[in-house]
Simulated assay, not measured.
Amino acid sequence: MKQNMMFALLASCCAFGVSSAQADTISFNYNFDLTQPSYQEADLISFDGARIESQRVQVGDVVEMTYTFKPGQAINLRAGNSEQILWLGAEQDASRSKPNTSNFTIANLSFDLLGLRGNFQSPPAGAIHASGSSHIGSYFSGNFITPGQSVSFTGLRARFSVQELQDNAHYYNAPFFLLASLGGSVSVQAVPEAHTYAMLLGGFAVLALLRRRYPKPA
């Protein structure tokens, strides 16, 4: 009896160890060129990244998606009279012989905009379930920005844990994101880089020095 209990306890500990070992943190990092959208309208823009090395995602994994833009690029979201949508995801590897659909549920969802300028009237609230297509990711929809106001940013980041995943495991290798501001506008804008600011400040310093050395005649 005692031996059986010890064996059962050992087996459960081993099973827990195997389960824990299987869980992992999966990172999707991609740098997008905003001059090449895959689809664009006045209030919507989407980007599909080039294929990256396939990542195996399974139940229990933590997924991190960090999508940045080329230097000097930013997205500007101007709120209209309706909701804003921010969608980060990764497509399933289409080269596999039998790609699976990816009905999934996620939890512990967090979201961040990199290089944010401007303010949200409420933090983005994300959906925790998607179905019917070969992707995994996070989807945020709501009235996050005050109507008539704008925000700009130079990247997006989402993090979540996978609770359920159809067929238990999938491979993904094509990052994407979609942004919309229904009734408003979504546009790409140039952001001066650090060296541009440095050159500008340097120019002002030179002008100040010249004025000191050569004051205007009375």
Rank of each mutant, 00 (worst) to 15 (best):
S54G: 06
A127R: 13
G80E: 10
T146I: 02
A169M: 10
L113E: 00
F153W: 05
A218Q: 06
K70C: 07
G72A: 08
G72R: 13
S54L: 00
S122Y: 00
R212Y: 14
V62I: 12
L86S: 06
S27W: 03
A205N: 04
S38K: 09
E193H: 05
L114V: 08
T154R: 05
K216W: 04
S110G: 10
R56D: 10
V57A: 01
N119F: 13
Q58L: 09
K70N: 14
I145Y: 08
Y39F: 15
W87L: 06
F153H: 01
P147I: 08
F111H: 04
E53G: 09
A50E: 12
L44G: 02
S134T: 12
Y172N: 04
N119E: 15
S38L: 03
T196N: 12
L200D: 04
N173C: 01
A94N: 13
W87N: 10
T154V: 01
S97F: 09
F176E: 07
K216E: 07
V188S: 13
P192M: 10
G202M: 05
L200N: 03
I45G: 04
A205E: 06
V57D: 02
A79N: 00
T35N: 10
L9Y: 01
M5S: 09
K98Y: 13
S138Q: 14
V57R: 01
A218E: 10
L179K: 03
M5P: 01
N143A: 15
Q166A: 00
V206G: 09
L201D: 10
Y30C: 05
Y197W: 15
T66L: 09
M199N: 11
A169Q: 15
S181P: 09
W87S: 09
M65V: 00
I128F: 02
V59D: 02
M5H: 10
F47W: 14
A50L: 07
M199S: 09
H129I: 03
Q58S: 15
P37Q: 00
H129M: 11
L77G: 02
S110H: 06
S161R: 13
Y30K: 03
F160R: 07
R159K: 12
D33A: 01
D24Q: 13
F144V: 03
N143Q: 15
Y67Q: 04
C13W: 09
R211T: 09
G132E: 12
S122N: 00
Q22L: 15
G203M: 06
R78E: 11
S122P: 01
I85P: 00
A174M: 14
G184N: 12
A74V: 04
A130E: 09
Q3V: 12
D43C: 01
T25S: 11
E193N: 12
Q189A: 05
P192D: 06
W87I: 03
S95I: 04
Q149V: 00
L109C: 08
N143V: 11
A205V: 14
R96C: 05
R159S: 12
L178T: 15
A125N: 14
A11H: 02
D43E: 11
T35A: 07
S181C: 10
G155W: 01
R51K: 15
A90N: 12
L44P: 02
E83N: 05
F140H: 15
N108W: 06
S138G: 15
G203D: 03
F16D: 12
F160H: 08
S141L: 11
C13P: 02
S20Y: 14
T146L: 05
Y171L: 14
D48G: 08
M1N: 03
H135A: 00
I136G: 07
D167E: 15
G72I: 06
N76W: 03
T68F: 00
